[in-house]
Write a protein that binds this DNA or RNA. Structure first.
Length: 490
RNA sequence: GGCGGCGUAGCCAAGUGGCUAAGGCAGUGGUCUGCAAAACCAUUAUUCAUCGGUUCGACUCCGAUCGCCGCCUCCA
């Protein structure tokens, strides 16, 4: 096995070599639960869902931990706005998160720890840092001594002096050094609080991941992931905390995915270009969103637009059309006597489907390239299917069916082609007809009228019917087995 | 200002120094069709932002320039 992953720490692709043979330990930073999830969260969940599925498909055992940040300033502020408790608000949006994840078909991680359920572990870690003089209490808060960790900045490629020069850090009287960051925050009246050796308060944001990853995956583990915006300061601070306290390397490989943009700008509420997962799923099938997200490599920015989603729709339908057509081939109609029409080249192409897929995915989970392999295969399958005679060779049919089974299996790693193809297409068609100004009965009666006209060679009326339907976005297709119709998508 | 990334056909998007620069959408020609559509076949980048350098050989490595984006404050 030769899985190579881009490691943010080194800036290079490195061979995945789990510390424990055959067992990958993965920690991903989950959501802060104070609002509905947006399409960027969807990308994160889907990317790591794909990573885990692929590693398991490759025969590795994966322990996947993804946390919930269920206590922090934003949660407290939002709870106050809504006249509710931080706990109630956080739990409500965790439920909403699960609703979205289930709709997207994202598998649950093995362990989903919540920050509020690991306060003792965090306090223990902070105490250890204080004991080693790598942290100091100050006015009820506890701060990390950035100067105690010479490698501070190694993940994000910056150094303490440069950052001080950046001067975007507000001066805080409590801190000895402006880059020192908070491990424990004293609570103001009315805020949620836990007892600690430094008085009542709550944990700082970064400490939870250090504490929980240590508890569930150990002091050193294989992969830590998240969005690119977490590199600094979140992950940088996690490294400082964990390596400072444990005296060991924290994480071997760091995976960071890119952003989703809208009109080439990062989504933000102030710009009003903010789209939630449920906004998208109201208009698009979850597999279309998955197809779109996996059409670009996970580290690249991904620009959301209606037209990009339309492309994704066309692409996914093309895959499903191919699968549906081959599903429909009847093995009863075959004969062992007919010669195979497969060329050596066709056979080779189909035979290489899985290895080409693996080659793409082994190379830093290149889903875009893997999708290319799917389409390449579909092209071959379509061509062969089209060339089949009335009584095709049973071995050819078997080859087609086997290829489709493989295709489905591999696409399933990205959560694609998971539905029955015929059902998927029929459902799509139904939804689209609903959006048209015409019903199925009318369409079919017009088609029947047209069939009659065509028999009588009344082309004028025949074309008139076709144009009439086309005006309502219904497109007719005259095939050897009669006339079928589709809803036009433009 | 510091750090990181990106710039490949009309659009989207792969490309792990050397074999034909994947694939999708759109376009064009053909097969099919009464004519179409769909499907299938063929075709569409002598060239990878620009300029230099390393090399027998660079889209791929190095440097500079231009343009775009992100992080440096909560952020997927």
């Amino acid at each position: 096995m030769n899985i190579r992953i881009h490691n943010t720490l080194s800036g290079k692709k490195e061979l995945l070599q789990p510390i424990e043979e055959g067992h990958v330990k993965l920690y991903v930073c989950g959501i802060t639960s104070y609002d509905y999830c947006h399409i960027g969260h969807a990308r994160s969940s889907l990317a790591f869902d794909m990573v885990v599925r692929y590693l398991r498909y490759r025969g590795l055992k994966v322990t996947f931990v993804r946390n919930f940040t269920d206590i922090d300033d934003k949660i407290i502020a939002r709870a106050n706005e809504q006249g509710t408790s931080a706990e109630e608000l956080a739990n409500r949006f965790i439920e909403e998160f699960y609703t979205d994840m289930d709709a997207l078909g994202v598998d649950r991680p093995d362990i989903e720890p919540k920050a509020t359920e690991h306060i003792p572990e965090m306090i223990a870690l902070i105490e250890e840092l204080v004991r080693q003089d790598k942290a100091y209490p100050s006015g009820g808060d506890v701060y990390y001594v950035v100067d105690s960790f010479p490698e501070y900045g190694k993940l994000s490629g910056r150094n303490i002096e440069d950052m001080k020069a950046g001067a975007r850090i507000a001066v805080n009287e409590q801190k000895r050094h402006p880059m020192d960051f908070v491990l424990w925050k004293s609570s103001k009246p009315g805020e949620p609080k836990w007892d600690s050796p430094w008085g009542p308060g709550r944990p700082g944001w970064h400490i939870e991941c250090s504490a929980m990853s240590k508890k569930y995956l150990g002091e050193t583990f294989d992969i830590h992931g998240g969005g690119q915006d977490l590199i600094f300061p979140h992950h940088e601070n996690e490294i400082a905390q964990s390596e400072g306290a444990n005296g060991k390397k924290f994480v071997n490989m760091w995976i960071h995915h890119g952003f989703v943009t809208i009109r080439d700008e990062k989504m933000s509420k102030s710009l009003g270009n903010f789209l939630t997962i449920r906004d998208i799923l109201n208009n698009y099938h979850p597999e279309i969103l998955r197809f779109f997200i996996f059409s670009t490599h996970y580290r690249n920015p991904l620009d959301f637009s209606e037209s990009a989603m339309q492309d994704a729709t066309s692409g996914l339908e093309r895959l499903y059309e191919c699968v549906a057509a081959i599903d429909e081939l009847n093995e009863q109609d075959t004969t062992d006597h007919s010669p195979s029409i497969l060329t050596d080249k066709d056979g080779a192409k189909l035979g290489q489907l899985e290895s080409r897929f693996q080659q793409a995915m082994d190379n830093d989970f290149n889903t875009a390239q893997a999708q290319g392999v799917f389409f390449d295969t579909v092209k071959t399958l379509n061509r062969i299917r089209r060339q089949l005679g009335v009584s095709p060779s049973s071995s050819d049919i078997a080859t087609l069916k086997k290829s489709v089974a493989t295709l489905r299996n591999l696409a399933g790693i990205m959560g694609l082609l998971t539905e029955d193809a015929k059902t998927f297409l029929a459902k799509r068609k139904q939804e689209m007809v609903a959006a048209c100004d015409i019903d199925v009965e009318t369409i079919e009666s017009l088609i029947n009228e047209r069939i009659q006209c065509r028999k009588e060679k009344n082309w004028a009326r025949s074309d008139e019917i076709r144009d009439e339907l086309l005006a309502k976005n219904i497109e007719l297709k005259d095939g050897p087995d009669g006339t079928t119709w589709v809803v036009r998508t433009t």
